[in-house]
């Protein structure tokens, strides 16, 4: 029997479309990305590890991952609340609120960055109010987190919203008819069913926050060891013409984010075992 790579199809254009796809993907994405990996390997393993063990690099990774993680957790709470409102709440301008949710996607990150900084600066509208309570936001790690919350919020909302809308009302009614309170129903029936969607929203928000630059860099203050995120460190190294060092930090950031996403996906596979396959 002839070994074929593709099932026969009567539709034309397979060779052309696949060829173009692979060519464009290679030129724009794959070859440049492989340059990154090869460039960082110029340092050798020892040099690579040395670069990453530098306290400033470690500090930037810590602040980036920790802020992204906290921001994604907070976004789960905020995002589920908003999604719940958008699906089940009653409000005359709900459609408008629904459309506005995507603003952080649509607003260029530099614009979000300067807007958030102005809002949360010590003399800003929210910054002065919070300052009276003794909370500083702009130019502190909290500021980084606030920017990451802003950029990640739509991911959680847009993941949870369809899952909540598809949730079979009868399941909740069954739970109530079996004597469960509304709170028990929420805790034992609704949230477990939403957990895959919540997890995927969390993952998307988390990974976006890890790589985020524009909306964070203005509000962060960019103090080495304190409020310098990994993306900014890459730029700093580039400006010092330390190409290999920049590549090493980039490879580490990229692999750590892919690893984190992989772990969360495995977790998600476990929580959805009941779906079978």
């Amino acid at each position: 029997m002839k070994l074929s790579l593709k099932e026969k199809s009567v539709l034309p254009g397979f060779g052309l479309s696949l060829g173009y796809t692979v060519l464009a993907l290679s030129l724009i994405v794959l070859i440049p990305l492989s340059a990154l990996v090869l460039r960082s390997s110029e340092l050798g393993l020892a040099g690579f590890i040395d670069t990453l063990r530098h306290p400033r690099v470690l500090a930037s990774f810590q602040i980036t991952f920790l802020s992204a993680f906290k921001a994604a957790l907070i976004n789960v709470v905020l995002g589920v609340t908003v999604a719940w409102f958008l699906v089940r709440g009653r409000f005359p301008l709900k459609r408008l609120a629904d459309a506005l949710v995507d603003l952080p996607f649509a607003l260029p990150t530099a614009v979000s960055g300067i807007a958030l900084t102005t809002l949360f600066a010590p003399n800003g509208m929210l910054g002065s109010a919070l300052g009276k309570l003794g909370i500083k936001v702009a130019f502190t790690p909290t500021g980084i987190m606030v920017a990451m919350i802003f950029i990640g919020l739509p991911f959680v909302i847009r993941s949870v919203q369809p899952a909540l809308a598809d949730l079979n009302k009868e399941l909740e009614e069954a739970s109530r008819s079996l004597g469960a309170s509304r709170f028990q129903t929420l805790l034992r029936v609704v949230l477990p069913l939403l957990s895959p969607a919540i997890l995927s929203g969390f993952t998307l928000a988390f990974s976006r926050a890890l790589g985020e630059y524009g909306s964070v860099v203005f509000i962060a203050g960019n103090m080495p060891m304190k409020t310098e995120i990994a993306s900014l460190l890459i730029i700093t190294k580039l400006e010092q013409f330390d190409y290999a060092g920049a590549a090493a930090v980039a490879v580490a950031l990229l692999s750590l984010s892919l690893l984190a996403i992989l772990l969360i996906n495995l977790l998600q596979a476990r929580t959805t075992r009941y779906l079978g396959n």
């Binding site: 994405v29 790589g211 993306s231 890459i234 730029i235 980039a250 950031l253 990229l254």
Partner: peptide, 22 residues
């Protein structure tokens, strides 16, 4: 692979072209 650029931080996206053409 088509989705890969979404997982790459924008700064890294810029960096790779510097590494090639800088």
């Amino acid at each position: 692979l088509v989705d890969l650029p979404f997982a790459v931080s924008p700064v890294i996206a810029g960096l790779i072209f510097i590494l090639l053409f800088g």
